Each structure stands twice: as structure tokens, then as C-alpha cells.
Simulated assay, not measured.
Amino acid sequence: MDRRQWLQGLAALPLAAALPAQAQDKPIQIIVPFGPGGSGDISARMLSEFLTRKTGRAVVVDNKPGGNGIIGVEAARTAPADGSVLLLATTSTHLANPALFHKLPYDPGKDFRLVGSFGPGSTYLLVRPDAPYKTLQDFVRAAKAAPGQLNYGHFNATSKVTAALFAHEAGIALTAIPYKQVGQAMSELMAGQIQVVFTDTVQGDSFVASGQLRALAVHSDARLKRYPELPRIAESIPNFTIRGGFLGIAVPAATPLAVQQQLNGWINEAVTTDPIKSRLEGFAFTPASVSLEQLAAFEREERAKWKQYVDIAKIEVQ
């Protein structure tokens, strides 16, 4: 039996068989490096319910917000590499942060391995329902008429880079207002303290569906089935090609390959079967089964692109 056959056979074993004895009965912890209510939190809780049913083990979602996700990532980086601690990996933590900070306490490519994905996502451009601009073109015209007087709220690296790149490609000047959590930015938008927020469709969906906020456009590969009348940003600004939000699951890099493969299989099953599949599709995500190799290639390619986005938007690296 060659090494590849041995690894394939090992991957087919139950996760418990691949773990040290002391790790087999541990609760599974999913660290979400942002606050409750966001897209990562929602996705992690869907996965936790699936893993509880699949493994019979307790699965706990642990929100550790702060520092653009860095606090939560650090907690996962130093956790045991035995499959008992998972990290909700996002565009911010694994793609944008490395482009925005000269020094990070972690290296996503060296310290972690992606083991699953919730699928490519989409992004809303949100304004108040009573805003004077009814279309994306109206918003751009208003911003050009008052340079720097329209504010956008950002609550993580993804929302910051997305808005800055949009402003650059639209030829407008927007003022950035930072928030610690998405809920704070949404509250300020509804109160009229800021004029626009870019957020992925998972965390923005309830605001749009309830009429609390209005989407002027969506950034996605195609118009949304749920809102076919909602234009894509690229229809007006074709150079705006940034990828929509990424949500995935990562583990410490030292986690045994067999454990990574087992987790990969479980997550692929979770996101491609109901009820999670239908919920993700309802949020305009496109869930699909992806291999460990595909995830690694995606991460390398997208990290290079996000550095380019930061350079193009002329965002000051901290």
C-alpha cells in the first residue's frame, strides 16, 4: 500500500479514530472572531447544529470579537491542533488583514489550514429606505456633488476595503467611519449618522427583508433570484470586480491530515444538503463541495488579489 492509499484509508475512518484518546470526548469549539448576529456567527451556528447531530458531541460557538478579528484568530492559533477547536475564517481574517497590516501576530497561510467553505457570497450596498438616492447612479451623483460629505461605516477589514475600492472605481470621495461590530454600523445607518454600508447578504438580509434598510445594488456574479430587480454594482461600475464575502472553517496547521479530511467531508456534506444549503442559497451564497487542495489554492490566489485591492484603493497600511 503506497502513502496516498494509506492516507485515503485513514481519512475514511471516523474522526475519533484519528484523534488522540484525550481529544475524542472533548466538546467542539467554533471560534467566531466577530460579535453575535453577523454572517459568520449565523453560519457557525448552523454548522454547530449539524456537527452536534453528526458527532454526538457538544459543539459550542464562542464569539471573540475585537481587533478586526485578530483576537479570535489568535485564540484559535494557540489552541490544541486536535480537531476540537475550529475557527470561522473570513475574508477579513484570511485575505484582507494581511494586506491592511504590516505586522500581524498570525500568518493565515502558515498557521492555519482551511478545511471547509460556506460558498462564495454576495454583498449589499445598503442605505436608509428614505434616502434621497433611489438608484446606484443617484448615490454616485450625490457623492460627486458633495466630496467627502457622505460617510460609510465599516466594521471589519472586508467592509473597509470593499467600500474604499468602490469609491475609487466610482470616482467619488467617501469618508470612512469605523465601528467595532456590524450591529453598531447598521444602527448608525438607520439613524442617519452614516449614509452607506457594504455588508454581505447573510448579515444584511434581515434588514432588507424587513424594510429597515434598502439595497441600492448587490455585488454578485449574477442578479439575485430573490431580488431580480436589484442591479449588480458591476452593471454600472464594471471595474468593481472584488469578490464577495468568504466564510469558511480553518484549523491550526498542525492538525493531522486525517482530521482535516474528516472535517472537510463533514462541512461539504453540511453545506450541500438541506437545511443549511437552502438557507445559504436564500442568503445569496453558492454552497459547493470543495477539497482541501482547492481551498488552499483559493486562499493563495485571493490573498494576492486583496493586496492589489488595497493598493488600488490607496488605503494606508497600518
Rank of each mutant, 00 (worst) to 15 (best):
A297I: 13
A284I: 02
L174G: 03
A234E: 12
T52V: 08
L7F: 15
V115G: 04
G244N: 09
A284H: 13
V196K: 12
Q24C: 11
T241L: 09
G192D: 08
E316F: 02
S187P: 07
K305W: 09
H102P: 04
K103E: 15
P275F: 10
I172K: 06
A163D: 05
G148L: 10
A191C: 09
N151L: 02
L47V: 07
D82Q: 01
D221F: 13
H219R: 14
E299L: 05
S117V: 04
M1W: 04
F207E: 12
V197R: 08
M46A: 11
A167N: 10
F207G: 07
V251K: 07
V32R: 02
D107I: 00
D311G: 04
G265S: 08
L126G: 08
T286I: 08
M46R: 08
K277D: 13
R303M: 14
E169K: 15
L189A: 12
R232I: 11
G171D: 03
V197A: 05
A288I: 00
Q184T: 12
L292S: 02
H154S: 02
L19S: 13
V60E: 14
L247T: 11
M46I: 01
R141W: 00
A313V: 06
A17L: 14
A96L: 05
P228S: 03
R232M: 14
K110M: 03
S43N: 13
A163G: 08
P105N: 05
T255R: 11
Q137T: 09
A16I: 09
G183T: 06
T286E: 09
N97E: 05
R214S: 15
P132H: 10
A304M: 10
R279S: 13
W266R: 03
K103M: 14
A209M: 08
G66L: 00
K305H: 15
D130G: 12
V251R: 03
K307A: 15
A58I: 09
D2Q: 07
D41I: 06
K305V: 11
G38F: 00
G192S: 10
G153C: 05
G192W: 10
N97I: 04
A44E: 03
V60K: 14
S92Q: 07
S92F: 02
W266Q: 06
G265A: 07
K134Q: 14
T55H: 12
Q308I: 04
M190Q: 15
E299K: 06
G69H: 10
R226M: 09
I194S: 03
K277I: 04
L174I: 04
V202N: 12
L150N: 00
G67S: 05
A185K: 06
L136S: 08
F101E: 06
H102S: 12
R232S: 04
A164D: 13
L19T: 12
A254S: 14
A215R: 06
V310G: 01
I177M: 00
R279G: 04
V317A: 06
L86S: 00
A44G: 00
F246M: 07
A258F: 05
S236T: 14
D311H: 10
L19N: 10
A79I: 09
L136K: 02
I242H: 01
A76C: 14
K225N: 12
V310M: 00
F246D: 05
V61A: 03
G40N: 10
K305T: 13
N97C: 08
R4M: 14
I312S: 03
D62S: 11
A253L: 09
S236Y: 13
P80A: 07
L87G: 00
A217Y: 10
T272M: 04
D200N: 15
L7T: 11
Q184F: 15
A288Q: 09
K64R: 14
